[in-house]
Design a protein around this nucleic acid. Structure first.
Length: 561
RNA sequence: GUCCCCGUAGCUCAGAUGGAUAGAGCGACUGCCUCCUAAGCAGUAGGCCCCAGGUUCGAGUCCUGGCGGGGACACCA
């Protein structure tokens, strides 16, 4: 593309000035009077070359003369070089988009290498809550961005199906079970109080009768555990399916034990000589790798802490061939980051392994008031309730539109609003509107097929509103690259909203009631073809962007009144 | 006490490795439908980018120190 050509020319020109490998920016200025592209390279080099920026700029301008597609270059301000592109160059973007179609925006930075994204990883102790929802949306979108960047992505869900929390769940189910059969038992204070626990108990009675009545033994508790875990796992999967999130693999913690990985990890850590005994427990010198203090691996009662299976699990990921791993977790887990990495460094894994994306918590507001409702879970709002109320697309978009590290306030009033205030509908509607153009063109018997559009004379895209849209569309690939590299899906949301706004503006400018001459569906076949080509290009970008985020790109919007 | 994140318009938030006059949406105000979906568009108003220093041609962005908000600091998971 033209940006790359200019960038390459700049690298050559700066090298000729004796400053090879110069770092500079080449991007689209906010102000159109500053050209279509601008670079700060002259200023960046001033110090290094000991010359004034404007003098360097003048020199560079001479060396850059004659780049195909560049109409003229101006020097402005402290030493910016502003590039003004010819109409043909702008039109070339449209052809590129039409040619690439649903692949427009993809790149091959990952070269097919494998990367694992682990996310949600909820324990099967209850329905998924909003934090899991944010994580599901984030993890899936990051995974998708990496796929668009040429990576082979593996989506993994880890769950803890043993341990203390699960034991408390089993005890809670057992208590409800006894209650339902008319016995006096109560859920312990640190147990699970939600209504769903009673549902599980009732379900168990229905399936297996009074088998465990008054039986508080290990066998009964184990049966409760297995039954509850299986049921809750299934329910979580349904919730995720309704949210359009799927995983390649579900990894249970118990497998780490049954496969002997925890035991072998203890052995390997001991061999490093970084372990020691104190107060009857086995410690690892994680402070040697930047952790704030040393950590216990095996408690004095002989059982491992959570830290140990975590290290074992990440060694297992590595051995499965995943040397690039991104864990999406709530920021309440941030204290585990240093210690897990320290444990892995003790075993000679690189210091940045694995990578973490930590996100802040979610609160829901309705009418400006925080809501903590839940029919079944008791103390928190479930993902299933939210999706049922606002729909998967709206929920996903809202979870994604803020940077992960910022707190997210989910505005239910806005989410339920089907008007232009709701950014999801704004973007989807812009897409549907463009689809409508093609439907109408077909009804009028006008050809708007692929070949007609591809052979359109793009030099006819002369209006400012048209050029602005094209320049916006041209930035999509770079935007996706930046979003993938920064694990930042919210950038895609921003971009889509802005693009939708510009598409709407363009569409409105050419609305028959306003300015029939700029309408897409004009009588002139040449103009019509090129404007429909632009519409198709814009539609492609909106659809690809929505697809990256895991959202539908509807051909038609139906409002529920 | 230590560590991490956040602090930008009335509200919710964007601001790529430091760049030109700090942006968007919502809310407020003013216009625009006999006509491709007005779920829209055009325009107006609204800012000591938390504070104080520092780095430099240039700081919302980087450094130091404060202030305010959130989170984490177990032989819990």
């Amino acid at each position: 593309m033209l940006t790359e050509r200019i960038s390459e020319a700049l690298r050559e020109a700066t090298a000729a000035l004796g400053a090879d490998g110069a770092r500079f920016r080449l991007d689209r200025p906010r102000d159109a009077s500053h050209g279509d592209l601008a670079t700060n390279v002259a200023m960046a080099l001033a110090g290094r070359l000991g010359r004034s920026p404007r003098e360097i700029a003048r020199d560079l301008r001479q060396r850059l003369a004659g780049i195909e597609g560049v109409e003229r270059i101006e020097i402005a301000g402290p030493g910016f070089l502003n590039f003004f592109l010819g109409a043909a160059a702008v039109g070339g973007t449209v052809k590129t988009i039409l040619g690439r179609g649903d692949r427009y925006g993809r790149n091959d930075d990952g070269c097919g290498r494998r990367v694992m994204v682990e996310f949600v990883s909820a324990n099967p102790t209850g329905p998924l809550h909003l934090g899991h929802g944010r994580q599901a949306a984030l993890g899936d979108a990051i995974a998708s961005l990496l796929e668009w960047s040429g990576w082979t992505v593996h989506r993994e869900f880890y769950f803890n199906d043993a341990g203390g929390q699960i034991r408390r769940l089993a005890i809670s189910v057992w208590a409800r079970y006894q209650q339902l059969l008319g016995h006096g038992a109560s859920v312990p204070e640190d147990g699970y109080q939600g209504e769903y626990v009673s549902e599980i108990a009732a379900d168990l009675i229905e399936r297996q009768g009074r088998k465990y009545e008054d039986d508080g033994g290990d066998e009964a508790l184990d049966a409760m555990r297995r039954f509850a875990v299986a049921l809750l796992r299934r329910e979580q999967e349904q919730d995720l399916a309704a949210f359009n999130v799927r995983f390649d693999e579900y990894y249970p913690e118990t497998r780490l034990y049954s496969d002997g990985l925890v035991a072998s990890t203890i052995g390997k850590l001991r061999e490093t000589g970084l372990t020691y005994r104190e107060d009857g427990a086995l410690w690892l010198r994680t402070s040697a790798f930047g952790d704030q203090k040393d950590r216990v691996m095996v408690k004095s009662d002989g059982s491992p802490t959570y830290f140990l299976p975590d290290v074992a699990y990440h060694m297992n990921k590595w051995e499965r061939g995943f040397h690039d791993v991104i864990n999406v977790q709530g920021s309440d887990h941030h204290s585990t980051v240093d210690r897990v990495r320290a444990g892995l460094q003790a075993l000679d894994r690189p210091s940045g392994y694995p990578e973490y994306v930590l996100h802040q918590m979610v609160t829901v507001e309705r009418g400006g008031e925080e809501v903590r409702f839940s029919k079944r879970a008791g103390s928190y709002t479930t993902l299933a309730d939210l999706v049922a109320e606002v729909g998967a697309d709206v929920a996903r978009y809202f979870f994604l539109m803020r940077r992960p590290e910022a707190h997210l306030t989910f505005d239910l009033d806005l989410a339920l609003d089907q008007s232009d205030r709701n950014p999801v509908y704004k973007v989807q509607y812009a897409h549907a509107r463009l689809c409508r153009l093609f439907k109408l063109a077909g009804e009028k018997g006008w050809l708007a097929g692929h070949e007609t559009l591809r052979s359109a004379d793009t030099s006819l895209l002369a209006d400012r509103s048209e050029r602005e849209v094209v320049k916006q569309l041209a930035e999509f690939p770079a935007l996706l690259r930046r979003a993938a590299a920064g694990r930042a899906p919210h950038l895609v949301c921003d971009y889509l909203e802005k693009t939708a706004g510009m598409v709407n503006s363009w569409y409105q400018t050419g609305h028959p009631t306003r300015n029939p001459k700029l309408s897409a569906l004009v009588e002139d076949p040449g103009l019509r073809a090129v404007r429909l080509a632009l519409a198709r290009a814009a539609r492609t970008v909106l659809r690809n962007g929505l697809t990256v985020l895991g959202l539908a790109a509807p051909q038609r919007m139906v409002r529920e009144d």
